[in-house]
């Protein structure tokens, strides 16, 4: 077993599109859960409506690409409003139940037979639908000539490189936005709501509006993650948006450290590095057949997470001081 190969596989995965998509999803969850204390268990639903907002408007209705992006983000906004209006005045658990159910309902509706004309049903929207499809303009915008690009141990095709560069730029932008917001008085109100919303209310803060703003903001970052996911694959299908994506998002967030600026990014990079290098290690060592590798790598990463929770419950970047207070 070549250790360098493990490292290379891990690194390629850690900077790749999947890690970016999860970093974005986790940044959204960080705004929800880490800073505001909102339990959104349906982040994947925001990703789904983001992706399909782009796919349906561009591939089915022939809208321009940029309008499709806007529609994808607006779809996430509308979903946040729909979920937030009835639940944000209630206790935190109601939002959790509603979001997880809504995400599954969306997936089943989008893959249902009656919706086939709009969503492509279970097969989703491949890139060929509607001429060059929703990713046509995206690929045309790619400034890199076709070929393979190598940077040390990293290797990308030109399409992948384009996704990776735009993706990391978006991640940086979102990290910057989170940072700017959370250091501001707005962020102070948001964090006070996480601590005790009655206290915030007693001090004259309209808690409902702040929670809604947080839900919309984090949901739209989730929508962006979905859009990037679709663009990376040049296709979308309902069954890519399974509930476990949300839980991987939480894993990533807690691994890196909730309520920290870089936590979701570090968490995602590390999570996908571990997953890919363990997979490569298991495959290369020949201890098991390739079919068994998928579940086993998850089990190993799960074990690592359990150890992390025992020895560093605040995550890698979290503040131990804060953890001690949760009595």
């Amino acid at each position: 077993m070549d250790l360098y190969e493990l490292f290379r596989a891990g690194l390629n995965s850690a900077v790749g599109p999947t890690a970016i998509v999860y970093a974005l999803a986790a940044i959204g969850l960080n705004i929800h859960f880490g800073y505001t204390g909102l339990l959104n268990f349906g982040q994947v639903g925001f990703m789904l409506v983001g992706a399909y907002g782009l796919g349906i408007s561009v591939s089915i209705y022939g809208a321009p690409f940029w309008l499709g992006i806007v529609i994808g983000l607006l779809a996430a906004l509308v979903l946040a409003l729909l979920l937030g209006l009835p639940t944000l005045r209630l206790r935190a658990d109601y939002l959790a139940i509603c979001t997880i159910a809504a995400a599954e309902i969306l997936r089943f509706v989008f893959r249902s037979r009656p919706a086939t004309n709009f969503t492509g049903g279970p097969f989703g929207i491949p890139s060929q639908v509607g001429g060059s499809g929703f990713s046509g303009t995206w690929n045309a915008l790619n400034p890199f000539p076709s070929g393979t690009y190598r940077f040390g141990p990293l290797a990308f095709t030109h399409t992948r490189l384009w996704v990776v560069i735009v993706g990391w730029a978006l991640v940086l932008l979102m990290v910057l936005t989170t940072w700017a917001l959370m250091r501001s008085p707005w962020g102070r109100v948001i964090r006070s709501i996480r601590e005790d919303e009655d206290a915030a209310r007693a001090l004259g803060k309209n808690v409902f509006v702040y929670k809604m703003q947080s839900l919309v903001l984090g949901g739209m970052v989730g929508g962006l993650a979905g859009i990037l996911l679709a663009l990376n694959q040049a296709s979308m299908a309902p069954d890519q948006f399974l509930p476990q994506i949300t839980f991987f998002g939480y894993t990533v967030l807690i691994l890196g450290g909730a309520a920290t600026i870089w936590g979701p990014v570090l968490g995602s990079v590390l999570f996908w590095f571990l997953l890919a290098s363990i997979e490569r290690g298991l495959l290369d060592s020949g201890v098991m057949q390739s079919g068994a590798v998928g579940p086993v790598r998850l089990a190993l990463v799960g074990g690592a997470l359990v150890l992390l929770m025992v020895f560093r419950p605040q995550g890698i970047l979290g503040d131990k001081r804060e953890m001690m207070l949760d009595a």
Partner: peptide, 16 residues
């Protein structure tokens, strides 16, 4: 500081 009323920075757009 949370207690202060009418803070401009508590509006999401001005916060940025």
């Amino acid at each position: 500081k949370l207690g202060a009323h009418g803070q401009r920075g508590e509006r999401i757009l001005s916060a940025l």
